[in-house]
Nucleic acid binder design. Sequence first.
DNA 1: ATGGCATGGCTCC
DNA 2: TGGAGCCCCTGCCA
Length: 556
Amino acid sequence: MAPQTRNQFPKVVIERDSDSEPSSSEEEEVEDQEEEDEEEEEVVESENRERKEEVLDEKKKGKAPITISLKKVCKVCKKVGHEAGFKGATYIDCPMKPCFLCKMPGHTTVTCPHRVATEHGVIPAPRRNTSNPLEYVFERQLRPGILPIKPAFIIPDRVNCAVIRYHSRRVTCLEFHPKNNNILLSGDKKGQVGIWDFAKVHEKIVYGNVHSCIVNNMRFKPMNDDSIYAASSDGTISCTDLETGISLSLMNLNPGGWQGPSSWRMLYGMDVNSEKGVVLVADNFGFLYLVDTRSNNKTGEAILIHKKGSKVVGLHCNPVQPELVLSCGNDHFARIWDMRRMEAGSSLYNLAHKRVVNSAYFSPLSGSKILTTSQDNRLRIWDSIFGNLESPSREIVHSHDFNRHLTPFKAEWDPKDPSESLAVIGRYISENFNGAALHPIDFIDISTGQLVAEVMDPNITTISPVNKLHPRDDVLATGSSRSLFIWKPKEESEPVEEKDERKIIVCGRAEKKRSRKSGNRSDDDSDDDKFASKGSKLKSKKPEWKLTRCSNKVNR
DNA sequence: ATGGCATGGCTCC
DNA sequence: TGGAGCCCCTGCCA
């Protein structure tokens, strides 16, 4: 498939110093110099000094100012002749390195075809057929439940954004209340759990003593929405009453306390099988534990489900057949299991990835698709768990590979999309939006690889790795560094549409109007909460953002 | 204003 | 097999 251009996307402008050599010769120069770089590196400093002195001399003599070209040293590869880093709001890659987005050599991120179009190289659905009998049953019984035609995505031209910051460390997980539409739960790296009523904006509760370090996953207790389970790197699972904040520890993997990093167990992946009344949780050594929700006790022995000593970061029970379990972890695999006979090596399928798998989820309605996020900068989709699972149905190159200092990116399904084709994921790489380097949150049509929409705010300059779509409303929740955001369509701009059509929240891309200077900061310097429409909030700050309506890019 | 640092996976030996 | 050192666009704080 030929690369397609997103015409309407902002052009990436590479600013070159006026005093630098023409670009054509620059690349060649780099090639030529490669061998002699070693020596030149040492010379460059003194050379620069000399040239500067020359300029000063010229100035003293009262001659007309001249422009000179100083040797550049790349901070990435330490070689001379080019520079990597931000030029304004655009990041220039080191040409000596392979593309950071798709990991292929021969080009840099700026010219990567996957950056130009997320659908580049993606083979769209329909998937391949197999003659597997299970797939036949699937086609007969489940397929009719999945809408073959995607609903129209009605895209408002603006969104309201509510901002709150009550976490003192970065946000690690989010969960919407199963019944109360305005309640968002958040966990952080410090072990705190927050409850935010985003309809009332200022109303929040923070429980500081739920865990002593990272809250990795939270799930509401089935049949009792006043309690949540949380798995933490402190090695415990907690069950916390949201009204009182009283927390009960269901399991502690480190009863002997800290004996050094080689023995300290941390809990990552977690899910609840409500039919069986079991909490499934997995640790950083590859083991799965089952906890009975009635007795609040561990049942059975730990089961090795991933490579021994590797972290199991995700667990998900199939929404239709809860005994089917999907796990993923640092051994580069996502694995499908039957809970009824789980033991080391008994996985039904092993889905290979090239790098660490950050998340793996069954599709939310039929449970028949799988979506994974891997640190090789690819989303992978398997269209049918009953079909051929040898290789994914599609791979979508998407920037989400940064792993240090950030909560891992996870692509999340839209639980409201009847066609099970919409996913949301934050973007690591920034783009130059009218002079501001912003990290958007992407809505991707996983059946085609197309970028349906991107959400960003000129005041939010941080990366947003944690995202969750509301199970019922057109609301997106985002965790970005220590802040939480709620994005909603702006009411007055909501188009009138047929009732069975659903909308997604999207922020139009801003037209160029404002300087970089006014675009910085705000991730909330005060601890005040804010709720503002883009229009009103930004008007007071004087930036003139003109928000354009995003076109509906979904193929129908 | 600016440097230090927390921190995790990967590669190399 | 395990420890040292490297790394790419971080974000916060002293």
